[in-house]
Every structure is written in C-alpha cells, then in structure tokens.
Design a protein around this nucleic acid. Sequence first.
RNA 1: GACCCUAUCGUCUAGUCCGGUCAGGACACCGGCCUUUCACGCCGGCAACACGGGUUCGAAUCCCGUUGGGGUCACCA
Length: 483
Amino acid sequence: MSDTVRTRIAPSPTGDPHVGTAYVALFNYALAKKHGGQFILRIEDTDRTRSNTASEEMIFEALRWLGLEWDEGPDVGGPSGPYRQSERSEIYTEHAERLVATGDAYPCFCTRERLTELRAHQRENKLALGYDGHCRSIAPEEAAARRSAGEDHVIRLAMPDEGETTVIDLLRGEIRIDNAQVDDQVLVKSDGFPTYHLANVVDDHLMGITHVIRAEEWISSLPKHVRLYEAFGWDLPVFCHLPLLRNADKSKISKRKNPVSLNHFRRAGFLPEALLNYLALMGWTMPDEREEFTRDEFIDQLTLERISLGGPVFDLDKLTWLNGKYMRDLEPQEILERLKTLWLSDEYLLKVLPLAHERIETLQDFFEYAAFFFTGDVDYDDAARKKLLAKGRTGPQTAKLLRQLLEDFIDPLLQWTAESIEDALRRFCEKYEVTAKEIFMPVRIAVTGRAATPPLFDTMAVLGKEVCRSRMRRAIEVLRTIK
RNA sequence: GACCCUAUCGUCUAGUCCGGUCAGGACACCGGCCUUUCACGCCGGCAACACGGGUUCGAAUCCCGUUGGGGUCACCA
C-alpha cells in the first residue's frame, strides 16, 4: 500500500455542491488514476450544526455527474472506512487522548466569554490574535480531575512557541513559519467532535493518503498539521496546494459574483465533460497547449508540477465557448439524449404540464405559455420592469429586498418544494415587514419574466432552485439600474 | 494589522529551472472571407513581461527592494 498513490476529496456537506470541490476533486482523481491508485471520497461532517444529509447526497450526485467516481467512500465502502467523519468519533477521541498523554495537547477550560474578551483585548492593543495558552500551565493531574468532574472543555494542540516549522509544498517548495505565530489550535470541540485539523490529519494517515491535494487556503494551517503528524510519529504525505478559483475581481470565487453550484451548471445545460475540461485548464496546460481534451487524456498527461500558481479567474465566456465545441462534436442523437435528461423527460414535462393545463386552449399554446420553463435567463420588457418594482419602492430598494430574500431565505433552502419556498417567502415578509402582495409580484416577474403565470410557489418548485436563483440575480442587476 | 502565498495581453496561459526568437496560443473584442440569414468554420487585427535598482555584451527569465492582488488569523471546513 505504501507505494500506491491514494488521494482524496474531503468535502463538507453544508450546502450546494461547489465548483471548487469539483476542481480539487479533478486533480486528486486524475493523479490517483494516473498511478493506478485510489481516489477516496470522505465526508467531513464534524460541524454538527451545519452538516446535513441532503448536501451529502448532492455531493455524490454532482461528482458522479462529472464522472469523478470514487473507489472508496461512504456509499461504496472500502477497507479504510467508515468514510463519514461523524461515524469515526471514537477514533478521534482516542487519538486526541494520545496527544494529551504525551503532552502534545492539553485540555482547555476557557469559556467562550474569556476568549472573546481576550480577542477584543488583543485587537485593541494591536497584538497578534490567538489563544494565550492560559490553560497550558494547568497540571495534568488537575486537568484530568476537572475533566472527570464533567467540566466543559476543549482539547488544544500544544504548539511549540519557539523555533520555526518548515513545510514543503510540492508546487511552492519550502515554506517557513515561526511557531510563535501559530495558535494552539482546538483539536476537539466541547461537543466532543474533532475540528478539521485533527480529523483531517488522523483520517489522511489512517486512510493511507499519499498526496494531500487541496486548496491554497489551507497553507496557513499547514504547520499545525505538520506538528500533528510529528506528534503522532507519522510520515508526512506530499502536500500540494492548488490555486484558488477567483471571481472577475480576483477575490476567492463566491456565489455572490459567480455561479458556483455544480447543480447550476448541470441545470444550465453544460456538459459535464466540458466543465471538467474547463476546470483542468484552470492553472494547468497540456504540454502541447491543446485546450480541448478528454478526462483520460488529462490523466495521461498530468504532472502536478505543470500547475501555475496565479489564482485563475473563472471565466464563464470561455467555459461556454468550450461547451459549444463539445456540443458541435456530438451527434444529434446524443444531444437528444442529453435534452431528455433535462427538459424533455416525461418527468419534467409532467411537472410543467399540470401548471399550464387549465391556462391553454390549444396544444400549441403550451409552448408559448410554458416557454420560461425551458429557457435560461428571462428578459424583462418595459411592462415587466414596471411590475418588477415592489409597490412604493425604487429599483435599488427592491433590488436590496430581493437580495436579502435570495441570500438569507432562498439560498439556505435544502428542500426545494412549493411548501418550503412559500414558507421561506413568508418568513422573509415577516422579518422585513413587507406584505406578500408587495413582494410576490416582483419575485414572479424575476423568475418568469411575466406577470401572468401559474401559482408562484409551484412554478418556482418546478423551475428549480438554480434557475430561480440565477434569474433573481439577474433581476437584481436590472433593478439596480431602474430609478 | 500580522503572517503566508502570488505577479506575462481585459481573461486562461506558453516561455522562467539551463539568460540571447518580431514574447507564442486560446477566450473576449474588432475587421474580412464563406453564406439567402444567423451560427459554425477560415483569415487577419488589437492587446502583456507590475515598478525600481542591480548582475550581464544581452534579463520576462538570475539577485535585491517596492508595489499590487489573494489567503489565513473560529469550539467552520
């Protein structure tokens, strides 16, 4: 096993499946395949308040849609399971206790209030932020006694406060960081669950991961991870930090500024093989600079060393162009098959049909009446623009309302049904003290482009979350320009 | 703010390790050709080595500094 390449993607199931997950997964997948090794899917659901199974399901589906099939994972099993961190609690507890026993970690009884005050004080006096090691000096016997008495506590990593840690990143080479500025990271939370740092290191080791390929945002916590490997006496894997995908303004890619949900790309009709190809182009090039290539060609040619480090801007235009090339290469029959999986399935048509049924007089009317169920973004003509405004409010004011509705009530929805949508809209009305009458028409126009539609919630349910969100974003942009 | 990462056309990038081509390709944009139209396709154009110092006959490439961009600084991952 030691000479087999084993890689993993370790997403956290806390929302819609992210394009960044697919990006990192692709490189992990390809490296494992290139060397005849294994690609593992591990679900990092140690944040009990945010993790949920609906998100986990979506990750499975999205990764499979892209063809990034895993060799071991929660749903397929494997020799190093379980692959869901919430099912591995005893393992983390046991490992954390090992560190406490050797003095590499210690119990900390500080309250959240104390930590908040500490942080405020540090901020005020422009000191370095971080835990001050308050509980580190508690004698082990005393700490043990307090723990068994049931006192609330966490387990912290005892980071050396002198010297420096040298870590090696495959792409960047040596990175040196003073230990003094590395915090005593919490390893086990007061609820008994591990934090990312502990769980990740323990699992990567136990699962025999040889190459840790993940996003650049993890570089700063590398010293903590290295310290953990050392404390456990384990060999280090190869670390390779991929550049972060960016918005057009170079900030870390985010859903405010870009479509980031893999569900969006699927619903918008991008071909998985084209998306994958495009993702491979982010920071990487074929030796011959060819831009169109298959997943297997990518696997064949991949060398991590060819990855460039400037954060690549995710460019929808170029993705769309590439997707077009793939489309043109498909036979009409194949296009038909793909259309059938999206808009021309009996399943989808039978959802749309009942909504149009009573409102049409000839069969042909269906296509006119239900057009917005099949198009991408919708246009807002002058009449629509007028009704896009909430009563008594300006364009920008309505835009702000819609944005709050979208970000605080629509985006977080895990269940997308007429009931859950209605509930979200009504909760929104209550919180912002707007009436249903005021806001429902703007929402209706936003998601359909029309004032006359089937019932709003049913319509939105059938359109799907991604289509609604994309059209609402568009409407918000339009509203900002209306006085 | 501290620390870390990073820097070639608007965007994705080749070239950088082993200094020496008009700094190459792609998207977007602009022109033209093809075509009943549009699209595709083809041809052409616009467009970059962040800045300042060195080293050198010669620097995108090596060294130093500056600046810009990004990330991290949670009992989230």
